[in-house]
């Protein structure tokens, strides 16, 4: 890794370090119930991260990111039941989901479907999954040894140690795995957007025509980042069904699809930490709302979405970063540093 990239990734690495501290501190401070709940939130944060990557950096408005998340969870569960161990199941889940995304993406990007249609198509795919899997409640719907279970879903076998199918992980150990997965995905995404590939994706987001005229195959880059995003979402799905213990068709419903969009909007497009942070915040908000019956969850989320689209379209993290930058610019320290760097350039 070059020193230039290290400098660009400094904020990412700082947040990752904070994450590692949290990962080792949390089980000593928090109760087991909270830890199990947190595992679910972490899985959802990975999902938010995947959408932050492809929407915020790739400019691909995917309304059905939750389809890849749910597909990953279902593939993991079904293959873990059939194989009798989680090691290969995780790999199969990520690869198969990416392959599905690549196939879907081929039709979308090579058909040059515009962004708005793309959102609607991906949403439609998600809803079709929802209605299809809901109908698989009979004993005739099974894949290998795994019954699909229709509306009630399938219970997921817990993760075991690699290549040791008899040593299952306990809930607090699953927490470590999930947190590690989140941090790895975060650093990976942070690295990816700083590579040449990532920069080309950002340039496509900014101006598709110009990037194409510069000689980049826009379709291929979009397909690439879309597929990678789906793979990350599948990792989230695997963690999710481990945290919850089962997977039901409800992951594919409209509410969850909307939730994913809301995390990214609230957190801010064009950042990675914003959507991940917003996921935790909104996860606890909706949990708290679940405890009372005056305000309906749908109602609150609908209002949040409308308010952010109309009033804070950039989202929280970019707004805060802008504000901090503006304040910093006012201080004289900044100008001194700038003078120094100019001297360096000259020298």
């Amino acid at each position: 890794m070059s020193s230039g990239m290290l400098r660009q990734m400094r904020p990412t690495l700082v947040y990752a370090l904070l994450g590692i501290v949290f990962m080792f501190a949390a089980p000593h401070v928090l109760q087991l119930f909270t830890i199990i709940n947190l595992t679910t939130a972490i899985a959802l944060a990975i999902l938010a991260l995947s959408l932050a990557l492809i929407w915020g950096y790739g400019g691909i408005l995917c309304f059905g990111q939750v389809a890849f998340f749910g597909l990953g969870a279902y593939v993991y569960t079904i293959s873990a039941i059939n194989i009798g161990g989680s090691t290969w199941a995780i790999l199969i889940a990520v690869l198969l989901t990416s392959a599905f995304a690549a196939a879907l993406g081929y039709f979308i990007f090579f058909g040059r479907v515009s962004d708005v249609y793309l959102g609607v198509i991906t949403l439609t795919v998600t809803l079709i999954f929802f209605s299809l899997i809901r109908r698989t409640s009979g004993p005739e719907y099974k894949i290998g040894k795994a019954l699909l279970g229709g509306f009630n879903g399938v219970s997921s076998p817990p993760i075991n140690l690699p290549w040791d199918a008899r040593t299952f992980l306990f809930p607090e150990q699953v927490f470590y795995v999930a947190m590690a997965a989140l941090i790895l995905c975060y650093v990976f995404a942070g690295w990816l957007v700083n590579t040449k590939f990532g920069r080309v994706c950002v340039s496509i987001r900014e101006n598709e025509l110009r990037s194409e005229l510069l000689g980049y195959d826009v379709r291929l880059y979009k397909l690439g980042i879309f597929t990678i995003g789906a793979g990350i979402a599948a990792v989230g799905g695997v963690m999710f069904c481990n945290g919850v213990g089962r997977i039901t068709p409800d992951v594919f419903n409209l509410y969850n699809a909307a939730l994913t969009i809301i995390w990214v909007i609230v957190g801010g497009r064009g950042t990675l930490i914003g959507p991940a942070g917003a996921t935790f915040a909104l996860f606890y908000l909706t949990s708290a709302l679940g405890g009372q019956s005056v305000l309906n969850n749908n109602l609150v989320l609908g209002v949040i979405l409308i308010v952010f689209v109309l009033l804070v379209p950039k989202g929280v993290a970019p707004t805060v970063i802008d504000w901090v930058n503006r304040r910093r610019r006012k201080r004289p320290v900044r100008s001194r540093r700038r003078r120094r760097s100019r001297a360096e350039d000259a020298g």
């Binding site: 409209l254 109602l299 979405l305 689209v309």
Partner: peptide, 17 residues
């Protein structure tokens, strides 16, 4: 267009709520 999509989605959740 994108903002309209998002706003109408918010509206959809709001109406369900």
């Amino acid at each position: 267009m994108v903002d309209t999509l998002l706003a109408t989605w918010g509206l959809s959740l709001l109406l369900v709520g």
